[in-house]
């Protein structure tokens, strides 16, 4: 069996990236809550502490601010730390070291130093977990100059983008989604990286472009397959990196289709979708044949009740609806 046909789950693809990077480079450290237990992080940290020891795989106290600062400081002094938050919501305690320090460090010190740190936040939503345990905060990080932001949607990208993030000399915010951890896909067993800043066409089509991030990219493919049966040919772009953003791929698709739906799993206002929409109208307005549509979360904190959760999280049905509204 050739290696690139091997199937692996998203969670185990992350695990393989960690195993390979830590094996290859002794400056790679992993710190965070739950790195030695499947409690929060599923299979992603399997065998790591056994293999690399508690000096390099550090299950931390509940101290997001100091642990993140420590990762940044270690990065400034020769290490390549990965700091993990089992839920993105907990990163809010660490905003200072991420934003004020890590993101600005290179610029404010004249490029004399950089911060090769991976800031890994897991989106852990649904299950009636409520406001403080369900948030998708990608926009907040993509807004900050000096941070790169990636959001893999497939096992292949989960591994490749994590390796690229560790190898990058800049702070990279790596955001994955707990809902994807059991998703199976082709993952080569050798070490490879997926370039940061490059999107990918998941499905080609001529009628309308749907650009999506993370799990919404999967929903977009589902939507495109259903629409295909009705004769609507959707081109699905999985952005993979929010920053830098692959404008080239985005623009070339829109130049072809003239119509755009943006699907992203964070709040609508001032969000990822708003930025993409602005980029398109600012640069290639003349190619647009219809208004741009956004599929995103309502401007509401995450509710607990399952009835509200069902209404809260968009899926392929919302994407289909948006496509039909502008594909007239």
């Amino acid at each position: 069996m050739s290696s690139d046909k091997r199937k692996l789950s998203y969670g185990l693809a992350i695990n393989e990236a960690l195993l390979q990077m830590m094996e290859k480079d002794s400056s790679v450290l992993l710190c965070g809550q739950g790195v030695k237990s499947p409690w929060y992080v599923g299979a992603t940290c399997k065998d790591l502490v056994q293999k690399f020891g508690e000096d390099r795989v550090i299950d931390t106290p509940i101290s997001e601010n100091a642990m993140t600062g420590a990762a940044v400081g270690a990065a400034l002094t020769g290490m390549r730390p990965i700091i993990l938050y089992p839920r993105m919501d907990f990163m809010l305690y660490a905003i200072d070291p991420i934003v004020n320090e890590a993101a600005n460090w290179s610029y404010m010190l004249g490029g004399k130093a950089s911060v090769p740190v991976v800031i890994w936040g897991i989106i852990n939503r649904k299950g009636e977990q409520g406001t403080q345990h369900s948030q998708s905060l990608q926009t907040m990080f993509a807004h900050i100059p000096g941070l790169k932001v990636v959001m893999p949607s497939t096992p292949y990208d989960a591994k490749g983008l994590l390796i690229a993030a560790v190898q990058d000399d800049n702070p990279v915010v790596y955001i994955d989604d707990r809902q994807l951890y059991n998703l199976e896909g082709d993952v080569p067993d050798e070490m490879y990286s997926v370039p940061i800043g490059k999107g990918i066409i998941r499905k080609e089509g001529k009628d309308i472009t749907v650009v999506a991030t993370s799990y919404m990219a999967l929903k977009a493919v589902q939507a495109a397959e259903l629409l295909e049966k009705e004769g609507i040919h959707v081109e699905v772009i999985d952005l993979r990196s929010l920053k830098p953003i692959d404008k080239e791929l985005l623009f070339s698709s829109i130049k072809k289709t003239g119509k755009l739906v943006i699907a992203d799993g964070t709040w609508k206002s001032y969000g990822v979708a708003a930025e993409i929409s602005a980029l398109v109208t600012e640069n290639i307005f003349e190619y647009l044949k219809a208004p741009i549509k956004r599929v995103a979360l309502p401007d509401t904190p995450a509710p607990a009740s399952r009835t509200l959760e069902d209404a809260y999280y968009p899926d392929e049905k919302e994407i289909i609806k948006a496509v039909k509204e502008i594909n007239k």
Partner: peptide
Amino acid sequence: TKQSGCSKGRGGSM
């Protein structure tokens, strides 16, 4: 997470 809950089902146990 029912409507008559103290947080109207928006919050849950926590």
